[in-house]
């Protein structure tokens, strides 16, 4: 469980937000919704331990990710993945390079043959079956986030932080991603998304959400049986099951 206590950020001589409390449970899908420039990306970077908050703390499994033991912090950060709506690619990488990089970040324990096999499966799952040799710079925003997500899933991360991914993926892939996230959550993974708006079809099931500072946090329901997720995710549920 990721617990945020009284988080605060002070920027440009003013308080951007303060006193943000929220707990993201294991095996849950949460969507943080707020208008542009409200600090969603900053909140995600704090939750995954990349940026220290100006006030408050984040505790994972009972230990602070900023003041805890170095080994625990490293283990936590190694089990996180991060996909952003926009990411630059100065090195001119191909989609396969991204997978290779992800494998290195995961400790390089995956044999090369297995990595390729998983890569093909994951790319097919996000609708990019033949994208292996495509340059990231030539991909559309939707293709980029899906390729980025697939590459991150290669390592089987426990905590997924997705910044604007659903919006960037576009409507044809929205439900497929929703199904995939539910399938991953059923396996015990924690998925935290930041979006400007909650997708309409998700809103009905998510209810009113809870207020956390300037944000509204919605919890997307995760059906107990795999059948319901399978109905929504199509191919995603069995493929997601194979990657964790």
């Amino acid at each position: 469980m990721i617990e945020a206590f009284r988080l605060g950020i002070f920027a440009r001589g003013a308080t951007l937000w303060d006193g943000v409390d929220h707990a993201f449970g294991d095996g849950s899908v949460s969507v943080i919704v707020a208008p542009p420039s409200s600090g969603k990306t900053t909140l995600l970077s704090i939750l995954r331990g990349e940026r220290q908050p100006d006030a408050g703390d984040v505790v994972v499994s009972g230990e602070s990710i900023f003041r805890g033991r170095w080994a625990s912090i490293r283990t936590y950060r190694a089990s996180c993945c991060h996909v952003a709506e926009r990411f630059s690619d100065p090195a001119g990488h191909t989609v396969e390079d991204l997978f290779r990089l992800s494998a290195v970040a995961g400790g390089g324990r995956i044999p090369e043959g297995e990595r390729r096999e998983r890569q093909e499966r994951l790319l097919a799952m996000v609708g990019l079956a033949s994208a292996r040799d495509w340059r990231l710079s030539s991909l559309s925003a939707s293709e980029r986030v899906r390729a980025g997500l697939a590459a991150e899933l290669l390592r089987g991360p426990r905590y997924l932080f997705l910044d604007g991914v659903v919006a960037a993926a576009g409507s044809p892939y929205r439900e497929m991603l929703g199904g995939l996230f539910r399938a991953l959550a059923r396996e015990g993974n924690t998925i935290v998304m930041a979006e400007r708006h909650l997708p309409e079809r998700w809103a009905a099931a998510a209810g009113e959400g809870t207020a956390a500072g300037p944000f509204r946090v919605y919890k997307v329901s995760v059906p107990a049986t795999s059948m319901a997720a399978g109905e929504q995710a199509g191919q995603a549920a069995p493929a997601g099951g194979g990657i964790a």
Binding site: R74, Y76, A78, C81, L101, V104, A105
Partner: peptide, 9 residues
């Protein structure tokens, strides 16, 4: 930077 973000010191 990508690796650092993912916990590689």
């Amino acid at each position: 930077a990508f690796l650092e973000e993912r916990g590689v010191p």
